[in-house]
Design a protein around this nucleic acid. Structure first.
Lengths: 185, 185
DNA sequence: GAGCTGAGTCAACATGCGTAGACTGAACGC
DNA sequence: GCGTTCAGTCTACGCATGTTGACTCAGCTC
């Protein structure tokens, strides 16, 4: 016996999970409401009734959970960045992957990702010394983006290694980027 | 007075240029044959007659010109990588951007990019010393990918700087990645 | 100059999509 | 128990898309 509320919650969750997976695998345009409904053992009409529109379904499925605050000395910041990167490499954050894959063809998704990234970058840039802090935080963002995309989306050669192995190579780069050891300031 | 061959070549080129731009701006699915034809001051039917299908048009528009061979000592390799990166940051390689943007929703485009990237990575990995050469070349690829995407496609904070400024930060990272100074080998 | 070829235009097609609305039956409140 | 609500299903609409084929007319071959 299942109450109506339970049932509702269950199928809504099933739809959301299916949506995240399909958006993450095929992007926004190639993911159809019909396909999501089928994958969730449900019905297109129901998806519409629960989420309003494909756009709103995507917005709910691809909302990127914010990382914790990043603050402290450059060394501490580097450590936090390494921890965040390890996590992003180890798991497959379905919502983030959906947003990432969609961002290149779907402006709304691009905004979601840009907001999530620049939020972090600004925090980092504000606490790094040196005139080129913004540029440095940009390169940090690019490196992170490249690694996550390269591992989860493009599956670049060599990036299928254990996260710790990748961090053994990429970690020192983050340290180098947070340390002020380059040009005059 | 224009000969038929000239005319043909001219509109074909116009279509290809428009296609590259639109594919690069909006991705594969959101670029319509009709839009390409309109941008090229031409006609959808003509586009079909000249290129056969949207798929073939894309294949011609998004073929990535190969970089030169990469070989030499680690230091020389780093130098070649820096030169390649500078170029990729300075210009906006329309064909490559089209392939890059499309690759996240279009498997054929993904193959094109992966082929172009792993080709280079293999060259690099084969000439770097150390057991983790493949992983290192993967991180090099990720960094390059992240910077190009971050600058041209996502427009990350800070990456709108002059290419030389970016290379002042990212160049040393490439050197670090080609030098064997990490774990035992 | 006659006949042919191919560049360019236009209208139509089949398909797949997001979405809307009617319908059914079981859980719910009283 | 009875009327209401709401999860779930099915059908259909309107639209945009890739693609096709017929048509026109200027350049080409002989």
């Amino acid at each position: 016996m299942t109450t109506r509320a339970e049932q509702r919650q269950r199928t809504e969750a099933r739809i959301l999970t299916a949506a995240r997976r399909l958006f993450g695998e095929h992007g926004y345009d190639r993911t159809t409401i019909r396909a999501v409904a089928a994958a969730a053992d449900s019905d297109p009409g129901l998806v519409m009734r629960y989420f309003g529109s494909k756009e709103k379904l995507f917005a709910q499925a691809a909302t990127i959970p914010p990382d914790g605050p990043i603050e402290g000395s450059p060394a501490q910041i580097a450590e936090l960045l390494r921890a965040g990167l390890t996590q992003k490499l180890a798991e497959e954050p379905a919502a983030a992957l959906a947003a990432l894959r969609a961002m290149f063809s779907h402006p709304e998704a691009a905004e979601e990702v840009r907001a999530a990234m620049t939020g972090q970058q600004r925090q980092v840039a504000a606490q790094l010394p040196g005139e080129d802090a913004v540029l440095r935080s940009g390169v940090i963002g690019a490196l992170t983006l490249g690694l996550v995309i390269g591992r989860h989306l493009v599956r670049l050669d060599g990036l299928d290694a254990d996260p710790e192995e990748i961090l053994a190579i990429a970690g020192p780069l983050l340290t180098a980027l947070t340390d002020t050891a380059t040009s005059a300031d």
